[in-house]
Design a protein around this nucleic acid. Structure first.
Lengths: 200, 200
DNA sequence: GTAAAAACATACCGACTAGTATTTTTAGTT
DNA sequence: AACTAAAAATACTAGTCGGTATGTTTTTAC
């Protein structure tokens, strides 16, 4: 079954390289030719593994984007501990882990959303699934905090979750315009303050 | 001077049509041919009025985007009245004025930022100018509120301004993924709440 | 009423695009 | 060693891209 393994590796290579190129140069403006040249493969190999560019895009969204957001931003929200601490820690750790490369090119999900979020319903719903899962994770920890009486319960958890996600995705875009981290630091200050005032 | 007038009208037509097409389909993926076909003109006319696509892009940013943001989001911030009310009113009025078309396609500035914010420094700094001006408007009204003792002064106005802008731009992108306004309503709730808690 | 200049149109270039059809290479089986 | 089927490479189609060179029409100035 060595052939199966090699085939899987080739497919994964195509996914990895195209993810990188989409992230750096956009989805619509990255050609299959470019991807396969980067992967040192040819177009024939591509159309062996994928039906068309759309299938590749959907795979990138539902696998690469989904997994990245889940591992770094959603999964930690289900950890044990004080609710506001969990949220602070999750977002701060992510913010502090950004490389220059990631700061310059923003959030891959946000890039996809803004480029093809209004393009085709298939892409739309694939990305919606990720945002909904993220929102659900935040609602979960917020509700837990409320029931444990550590968080105020005047405002709906859904509203708070949406506001947190919006601001985070927003700053990932805006940071692209700057050459230093001032704007990120300002965001961080406000974010910490926002979470603090949710506490009882 | 009729010739001058006609020439100006043609240039303005090119700007208007290209703005619309960029907004709906993206900057990089909208061709000069497409723009001129939409404007019922030819490529010769385009290269008479603009050196190249880059000059068109920069003009769109520094004129169309700049003016839209300034008129609707920045200028009202310098009005008289209670600081928190001014902010609430400015953002709420904009949020309530969105057509379905605008909800589906997001914020034109945000789209540009996420598509070409990491593409070329010329675009970058043109857009940075807009964000900085917006941020300055918010800082102005926040500082006024603080000096008038209607707003708390623990948190830096710059941080608050960045957080407000980030969340607003973020939600404009995320809304693209949904077919109804639930997510916008949730954002609005959280936004109003955020401004309320800034008050003394 | 004519010449210069500005405004726009037409035709084209070489490079690139998504996608397809065909051929060659590779690996596993008999 | 012969055969087979999957994987990958090559060649190609029909069309688009940004940009240029040159032609034609319209307007202005004298």
């Amino acid at each position: 079954m060595d052939q199966v393994l090699k085939s899987q590796r080739t497919k994964q290579l195509i996914l990895d390289e195209s993810y990188k190129l989409f992230y750096e140069h956009g989805f619509k403006t990255t050609s299959i030719d470019k991807i396969m040249r980067t992967a040192s493969l040819t177009k024939g190999a591509f159309y062996h593994h994928f039906q068309n560019k759309k299938e590749l895009g959907l795979t990138i969204i539902s696998q690469k984007l989904q997994n990245r957001i889940y591992d770094k931003m959603i999964s930690p929200l289900y950890d044990q501990g004080d609710a506001s601490e969990i949220i602070l820690k999750t977002f701060n750790e992510r913010l502090n882990s950004f490389s220059l490369y990631e700061k310059q090119h923003g959030c891959s999900l946000n890039n996809f959303i803004n480029e093809i979020g209004d393009y085709e319903t298939a892409y739309q719903s694939a990305m919606k699934r990720i945002v909904d899962e993220w929102k659900a994770g935040l609602i979960h920890v917020l509700e837990r905090g409320k029931s444990e009486k550590t968080l105020r319960d005047e405002l709906s958890s859904a509203a708070i979750a949406v506001y947190i996600i919006s601001a985070f995705e927003g700053i990932r875009g805006i940071r692209k315009l700057y050459n230093d981290d001032t704007i990120i630091e300002e965001y961080k200050l406000a974010f910490i303050n926002y979470i603090q005032q949710l506490k009882k």
